[in-house]
Design a protein around this nucleic acid. Structure first.
Length: 419
RNA sequence: GGCGCCGUGGCCGAGUGGCUAGGCAGAGGCCUGCAAAGCCUCGCACACCAGUUCGAUUCUGGUCGGCGCCUCCA
């Protein structure tokens, strides 16, 4: 399989043998996750499922960042409780997507000793320095800094001056505890807590090793988050990720859906409104590397596709479907829109179910049986029709519809479909 | 200012140097007691301007337009 890689800007082939180790950046837990947060989660799970069906050994790590400025700001004095609660929300919400869970869901707070050791190594190598309880990464020490995002250190917009930094673009590995921060850990530099980027380098390497195959996350993480992860890990001589996959962001009413703009729909709201299947199909309709609009229209369109697949399973299974065509679409940069188009032509129930299962959509193959009382009405309607009493037949159909079912006349009788 | 992405038929959205994407919506038809579902047919699609080429939506250059990131955003 080949995947578009941010670092080389090319499609890079995965190794043909050996395990596929993947690290996908998860949420910072301080509020309910929005639908955009679901995209990297979903992509990670799909890749994992697909590689499994290809017989590969896969391990997917999806981190939870539960130490962050935003959490302190959102819950002054109770940040740990908020992080814990928001982590539970995230588990609930992603579980509702019907894709199961990644192999590992590490939390930053559980890796602080390893983070401290990592920072100590960076200091020992001259890549980081301590100032008054803070530790900063020395960006100018890395001649390749900026190679992931294309940003050169001298081009990066300067932030608010921080007199403690040697250079304004240096970033924090460790931050000294502030009075309003209610969680802290002891370290060689005093009480404090990890900076934003270091936890991912550490957790990825702890759980996958100093080199792994795929690192994913939202496009907005390329800079600075992933650039800095790469800088930290390569400073210690680690290869880190072989392929960087960055998913396009969701746009809502034309502009980016973002927490700061407030125009967000949570995963939970979306699942309630459209159901998890329509959401998954919606994600399927756009290539993972490109932005997609989130709107009523596209969701209605996704719902229609869901119905269409369900309809196939209500019909007769026919030997129509070419697995290789499906596989070819996914093997070439995981092109789900193409794969989806292929699947729309299939009539082989077992094959289609197997393909949909890759995307967590096997449930589309489940046909629902009507309760006995509805079947009874349908039977009566069949007799009425046989007797050419169409007024009675239409009355019964209305009654069936009122009960939430649709009566369809088919060659050998009737079919009942939930509405 | 720096880095990067994108402009495909009413909408969404793949893809290709010449051969059907697919879905939604729309029109007509088949089927039906009427429907529903399904199936069939249809709509002069590739922002603009040059260039390369026998031939470009697909390659190159430019123009216009939209969008993302630039140290709290998946």
């Amino acid at each position: 399989m080949r995947l578009s890689d941010t670092l080389t800007k090319q499609k890079v082939a995965l190794p043909d043998t050996g395990p596929i180790r993947m690290y996908f950046c998860g949420p910072t837990v301080y509020q309910r996750a929005h639908i955009g947060n679901a995209r990297p989660f979903v992509l990670g799970m799909w890749l994992r499922n697909w590689l499994h069906t290809q017989g590969r050994d896969v391990k997917l790590v999806h981190n939870i960042t539960d130490i962050n400025d935003r959490i302190y700001e959102a819950a002054p004095g109770a940040s740990a409780e908020l992080a814990e609660r928001a982590t539970e929300w995230y588990f609930e919400d992603t579980e509702a997507l019907g894709l199961g869970l990644p192999d590992e869901l590490p939390k930053a707070s559980e890796f602080v000793p390893q983070i401290i050791r990592f920072i100590e190594e960076l200091i020992a190598g001259g890549y980081a320095y301590e100032v008054e309880g803070d530790v900063y990464f020395r960006v100018t020490r890395d001649p390749d800094y900026g190679r992931l995002s294309g940003q050169r250190p001298d081009q990066v917009e300067e932030q608010e001056p921080n007199a403690r930094k040697e250079d304004p673009r240096d970033f924090a590995l460790w931050k000294a505890n502030k009075p309003d921060e209610d969680t802290w850990w002891d370290s060689p530099w005093g009480r404090g807590r990890p900076g934003w980027h270091i936890e991912c380098s550490v957790m990825a390497e702890e759980l996958l090793g100093p080199v792994f195959e795929i690192h994913g996350g939202g496009l907005d993480l390329v800079f600075p988050h992933h650039e800095n992860e790469l800088a930290q890990s390569s400073a210690l001589g680690h290869d880190f990720a072989r392929i960087w996959t960055h998913n396009g962001l969701l746009r809502f009413t034309g502009s980016k859906m973002s927490k700061s703009e407030g125009n967000i729909v949570t995963i939970r709201e979306a699942v309630e409104r459209w159901g998890h299947e329509a959401i998954l199909v919606y994600f399927l309709t756009g290539h993972w590397s490109k932005p997609i609009d989130f709107s009523e229209d596209v969701m209605e369109s996704a719902e229609a596709r869901v119905d269409r697949f369900r309809e196939v399973f209500r019909g007769e299974s026919q030997a129509v479907g070419d697995w290789d065509e499906f596989a070819a679409a996914l093997e070439d940069d995981f092109n789900t829109p193409e794969a989806l188009a292929v699947l729309h032509g299939w009539r082989d129930h077992a094959l289609l179910r197997r393909a949909l299962a890759v995307f967590g959509l096997a449930s589309l193959a489940e046909t629902e049986d009507a309760p006995p009382e509805i079947v009874e009405l349908a039977e009566r309607r069949r007799h009425a029709r046989a007797a050419r009493d169409f007024d009675e037949a239409d009355r019964l159909r209305a009654q069936i519809e009122a009960a939430g079912w649709e009566a369809r006349d088919v060659a050998d009788g009737f079919q009942l479909v939930p509405r």
